[in-house]
Write a protein that binds this DNA or RNA. Structure first.
Length: 680
DNA sequence: CTAGGGTTAG
């Protein structure tokens, strides 16, 4: 910029004529503003050509205030300035502003050019404003741009994004000189609506036209084929930009290969908010919530503001961990206007609050979502059911019908779960009938699972067993597991033996099944069978299942394993436990090994009952939170029967409210009883 | 103004 040090010299004016170089290469807004003031000083601030370049550069800094200042400074803006304005606004994702700018341009009497349309059309596509898109299409025709490959490519994308794939195909077919870009638009559109076969055919046509596909198209097509091996080969010679690599990261995440995804992510030179969100979401949906949150923090450290996608990823991670404080903190980062919250983000929030046992807040979010789609309703219903608010769940279902939202299979999964947790056998049968007979929805294995669960818990073990046999599909481990739960609750070891044999077949990797089966054999003195199961476990290299519980205190998630002594406050925790033990025994509590038969944690001695992970987490909660705070614990397995009895009494002795979420449901302990009414 | 398409979510 040395050339500008003496602006009065004639070299300054000359320099401005090679301005493209300068005006496009500003590192800071300050530099740009400096040049702007120089222009004003020498009276060149009314040259539209120069202002246009200045305007274009100003968008690099996303300062719309300054951008408008530049624009409004011109006394007579020309069509190029208007175009630059529209394009710039689109480039910084201000789609509504871009459309407003386009409207002003039209009001001022300017005709759009071939350069204008692609950008306004993109704004429409991103806002899914199909009506305006149609209007623009007719203008395109009227003004004679219907052969323009650029304009039509944008139209293809608009139609595809708004879900009108047939129209997109029609426009695409009429493009006389198709190129890679227009082919990409239609291929992406086809994949977007799940027409992978057609997308692949289109890709073949592209090759037949002797067009060279870019890496991005290759990634999309290969993802559509899910040809992992091929992709690996293709990856090596691929040119990488942020779009391509982010797609690759997403692809590997979707295949469950998080190591590969992370490797690509770390190697990326430029990461944008989408790359971060994709990676966070990848962790969250692959059951790695801690990593998801770690990366979320990492992103904030890089000075990036989370967008909706990153938020959804973080929230679903919090939901899984039961980390209410973290979830609330995350959502506070984003200025969520309760009335404009989008349904996807809303659902994630409802889910997070529901899984953290905070249904009042979930309901507030639910009320605030204007555009409630079916998923939102379903999330609210299953949230209520999961938290034991069964009448409320039924009421919301009634509302849903009143609003004319047709329920789907998931709605009934929520309702049936509610029936199960409340032991409402007749209501459950009714809902199942409504679904099948009246709404003609085909029950999935999940629905059968709920019904089996419902019947088993109510002690109707034969009926449940019959239902399994009559199912049109093969029963899976979840269904058999439900029946096993009933056997446990009603102490039917004979049926349990049969069920466990099935389960060992179905999930040979699940150590819990072997442990329970061998426990049952031992209890019925079938020592040989017990020994066989044990040695089978050894042969298959089974490792013990370790129970694991989490508790969040002051925004930090603490993890406990069975008999864990690794926590810094371990001593305090154990002395609290022995103190509690005395109080418990004084209150008439006798540790029971009765449950050990069905225990999936491979620990048989009374000693270990004292230090199951959930008890450790509760004890830690007691010594590290204030007396009025609710203690929330999450366990990765079913809560152990003995611990359940103990925690009931702990809640009575200490007067604290304790909420334990296990794999199945919430247990809200208060005053010596549990919300599950010992029914789980 | 020499463009246009394309990546993430409940």
């Amino acid at each position: 910029m040395g050339i500008f040090t003496n602006p009065s010299s004639p070299s300054f004016t000359r320099a401005l004529h090679i301005k493209d170089r300068f005006l496009q290469s500003f590192d800071s807004l300050k530099q740009l503003k400096h040049v702007h003031s120089q222009l004003i000083r020498i009276g060149l601030d009314q040259e539209n050509y120069l202002l246009n370049l200045l305007l274009r550069s100003s968008f690099d800094f996303k300062d719309t205030h300054y951008t408008r200042l530049v624009f409004h400074q011109t006394h007579e803006p020309n069509v190029f300035l208007w175009n630059t304005m529209v394009r710039g606004l689109v480039s910084i994702d201000c789609f509504k502003d871009a459309i407003a700018s386009y409207a002003s341009m039209r009001r001022e009497g300017f005709s759009p050019t071939g350069f204008t349309f692609p950008f306004v059309l993109k704004a429409c596509a991103r806002l899914l404003d199909f009506r305006l898109g149609l209007k623009l299409h007719s203008q395109v025709v009227k003004l004679g741009f219907s052969c323009d490959v650029f304009v039509n490519t944008s139209l293809v994308s608009l139609y595809a994004k708004c879900g009108y794939i047939e129209d997109a195909l029609k426009v695409f077919d009429d493009i006389p000189n198709k190129n890679v870009v227009s082919c990409t638009a239609i291929i992406t559109g086809l994949i977007g609506v799940g027409k992978c076969r057609e997308a692949i055919d289109m890709f073949r046509k592209l090759l037949e036209m002797d067009l060279v596909p870019d890496s991005f198209t290759l990634v999309r097509v290969l993802s559509a084929c899910a040809v992992i091996g091929d992709l690996k080969n293709a990856e090596t010679g691929m040119s990488r930009n942020v779009f391509v690599t982010t797609s690759l990261v997403d692809f590997h995440a979707k295949c469950g290969n998080m190591e590969r995804a992370r490797l690509l992510f770390d190697e990326m030179g430029e990461k944008d908010i989408v790359s971060w969100s994709t990676m966070i979401q990848g962790y969250a949906s692959n059951g790695l919530p801690k990593q998801a949150l770690e990366l979320f923090h990492n992103m904030l450290d890089h000075g990036l503001k989370p967008d909706c996608y990153a938020m959804v990823g973080a929230l679903s991670a919090c939901a899984r961990l039961g980390a209410l404080e973290l979830g609330e903190w995350a959502s506070s980062l984003m200025n969520i206007d309760e009335f404009s919250i989008n349904p996807v983000l809303g659902t994630a929030l409802i889910d997070m609050y529901a899984k953290c046992g905070s249904m009042t807040k979930a309901y507030d979010v639910f009320k605030g979502i204007r555009a409630k789609d079916r998923v939102v309703w379903n999330a609210e219903i299953s949230g209520l059911a999961m938290n034991g608010h069964i009448p409320a769940a039924f009421a919301v279902f009634g509302q849903m019908q009143k609003y004319g939202i047709p329920p789907d299979g998931n709605t009934f999964v929520g309702l049936l779960c509610g029936c199960t947790h409340a032991g409402l056998v007749n209501e459950g049968r009714q809902y199942f009938n409504i679904m099948v007979r009246i709404l003609s929805l085909a029950p999935t294995i999940e629905h059968y699972g709920c019904m089996v669960d419902l019947l088993s818990r109510a002690g109707l073990l034969d009926e449940a067993h019959q239902l399994i046999k009559s199912m049109p599909m093969e029963a899976n481990a979840v269904v058999w597991g439900s029946l096993l739960g009933g056997c446990r609750l009603h102490r039917d070891t004979q049926l349990a033996e049969h069920v466990l044999k099935k389960l060992v077949e179905l999930e040979p990797w699940n150590a819990g099944n072997y442990v329970q089966l061998s426990n049952i054999y031992s209890a019925s003195h079938k020592w040989d069978d017990a020994e066989n199961v044990r040695s089978l476990m050894g042969e298959r290299g089974m490792t013990k299942l370790r129970g694991c519980s989490w508790i969040e205190v002051c925004g930090i998630v603490h993890e406990f394993l069975v008999g864990d002594t690794s926590h810094p406050l371990s001593e305090g925790i154990y002395s609290k436990l022995s103190e509690l033990d005395k109080d418990l025994r004084a209150a008439g509590y006798v540790p029971t090994t009765e449950y050990v038969l069905f225990d999936i944690e491979d620990e048989e001695k009374e000693h270990f009952l004292g230090c199951h992970s959930e008890k450790l987490a509760v004890a830690f909660g007691l010594i590290s939170t204030g007396p009025a705070e609710v203690i929330r614990v999450v366990k990765n397995l079913r809560v152990c029967g003995d611990c359940h009895e103990a925690i009931k009494l702990i809640s009575k002795i200490t007067g604290r409210e304790i909420i334990v979420r296990d794999t199945n449901r919430f247990h809200c302990f208060s005053g010596g009883t549990c919300s599950c009414k010992d029914y789980w």
